Every structure is written in C-alpha cells, then in structure tokens.
Computed example of a mutant assay.
Amino acid sequence: MALKFSIKHRFASSRVKCVDLHPTEPWMLCALHNGHVQIMNYKTQQLVKDFELCDLPVRSARFVARKNWIITGSDDKLIRIFDCKTMEQVHSFEAHSDFVRCIAVHPTEPLVLTSSDDKLIKLWNWEKMWECQRIFEGHTHYVMQIVFNPKDNNTFASASLDRTVKVWQLDSVSANLTLEGHEKGVNCVDYYHGDDKSYLISGADDRLVMIWDYENKTCVQTLEGHAQNITSVCFHPELPIVLTGSEDGTVRIWHSDTYCLETSLNYGFKRVWSISSMGGTNNVAMGCDEGSIIIKVSSEEPTMSMDKVASALPATSATSSGNSSPN
C-alpha cells in the first residue's frame, strides 16, 4: 500500500489514557492518569489548556463539537461536562458506583453512553437534565470500552474483561448478541465503517486482535504479533487500514482487506493506551505512557513537533489510584 507515516505532533506528559480529535478545530484532547485534562493545538504548536480535574485518573474524555463541550469520566465515578472554549464546568454528576472507563457520544442525538468497573453501561440524555434513561446489564466484569455503530446509531458494542464483546440496541436492556473467542479480558472494540462488511474488531489481554462478522457471529480473522496486551483497536474511517495499540509500546498498521501487516510503529513513549482517528483527515492520535503523538498517514514531511512546549511544562508522574483495577 506504500503508506508513509510522519510525526505531526509529539507531546511529552504523564500517562495518557485517552485521546480524541476535534472534528473541525485542530485540537487533540488528552485524558491523563494523573487527573489532568489537556487540549493541544497541533497547528500552532501550543498547549491550549492544562487543568487538574481531580487527584485520580481520568480514563475517558470526548469532544461534543455541536455543543462546544468536553465530557470526562474519571476514577472518582463522576462525569463532568465543560465548555471547551472557556473550560468552565457546565455540569457534573456521579454516574457509576466504580471507575468510569469509557464515554461514547451519540453522533446526532443528545445521548451519551458510559461504562464502568461496576459492570454496567448507562445511557444519559443531556436534554433531560442528564437523566439516566437506560441501564444495560449483562457483563460480569469491568466494561472497558463502548462504541456506537457508525452505520446504525441505534446499536453499539461493548468490550469487557469477562472475555466477551456484546452488541446492544439503545431501546433494549439486554444484549442482542455476545461474541466469544478471546481467552482473556477484552479491552477494546471498534466498528468497520464501510458498507461492504458488517465487521467489529476487538483486542484483548491474550495479545490477539480478532475481526468479527457480527451478522454471522463468527470470527473471520485473528491478527497476531503484539508481544503484550492489546489496549486499543481502530478501523480507520476512510483509509483501508486497521490500527492496533499494545502495552508492548507499538502501534501496528494492518491492511483492512488482506490483514497483512503494513508496518509497526514505535515512538519510544512506552505503553500505548489509546488510538483515535477522524474522518476527513489522515491524522491519527495516540496516547501513551509518556505522552501523546499525532501522526499523519501518507505524508512525507513532518509538519510539527511539540517537544519545545513539553520542555517548558513541569514534569509530572502518573499517580496510583490504590485500586487493583487494570491500568
């Protein structure tokens, strides 16, 4: 495929648990293990905002562009909503009885899904004063990630340490189907965006990546090669590639049709925790133990580095939550 990968942004910081890209602004959002949230402008090479949310890990943060919001989920069990221009807190509430692992924002409706170590997934409506409209039960261990189906926004998938991937509908509290095949806990899940395949991808602590046909409930491909737990998986919304991140410090790029390994990237930021890509751009963001990176796919020349900004920031270190939960 002859893709090229160049560093567009490299930002040293504490452990980055989640990254998100703004759909219209040149912003990358980072949720940090030390309780901070950061916004970086990867065009101006500026740190836009760095503020402390709490003294516990922030495991998820998402842009809601149509509301000019940032939504965060953290180990203090709270969901917080901020104005992403002023960074003033709009609202906060206790969403779960344990750590908040993941947030998924519905692309058109005023709905947000959250998942937690309490084994539950909850649906919230911000137009109804953040009312909890539905609780989805069925997982028997921590629910590590949730993601909406881009081809059917009424359905979503979840990954759990109970070794399963489940597919749900918003109007039903019971899962439509359960995909079983991983030998250890599943950390991450994503949907294929094209119309030609009804596929899901999952990554687990068994170091395997599995491609599922969720209509036929079968595993169609297993990707092997990572040396440690799989922490993040991503079907690029436009390019024919699959990205997989691991605690082995690498991001592997696979062809989404042939499943051949295209390349393995290692930028020396240690364990990879999060990968985010955005339609309409070739930028891919990565969150790692020692910072965040944005690469540009198919670009021959690096366009920027954030090292000079990072060097001006005080050194930070990841803090432990004192809980035996996975990192």
Rank of each mutant, 00 (worst) to 15 (best):
A2R: 02
L3P: 00
K4T: 08
K8W: 10
K8G: 15
D20H: 11
T24G: 01
M28N: 02
A31V: 04
H33N: 14
D55Y: 12
V58R: 10
S60P: 01
A61R: 02
N68H: 02
S74Q: 08
D75E: 14
K85W: 04
M87L: 11
V90G: 05
A104Y: 08
V105C: 15
S116L: 07
L120C: 11
K122L: 11
W126E: 06
E127I: 07
E131V: 13
Q133E: 15
F136A: 08
P150Y: 01
N153G: 01
N153M: 07
S158T: 12
A159Y: 02
W168P: 12
S172W: 11
S172F: 13
E183N: 14
K184A: 14
S198Q: 03
S198K: 01
Y199H: 10
I201A: 04
S202H: 03
S202A: 06
G203N: 06
A204N: 08
Q221S: 11
D248W: 09
T250R: 13
T250Y: 12
S256Q: 10
L261Q: 14
S264D: 03
N266D: 15
Y267P: 08
S274Q: 14
G279R: 09
G280V: 05
D289I: 01
S299H: 14
E301L: 11
P302R: 12
M304N: 08
D307C: 03
A312S: 15
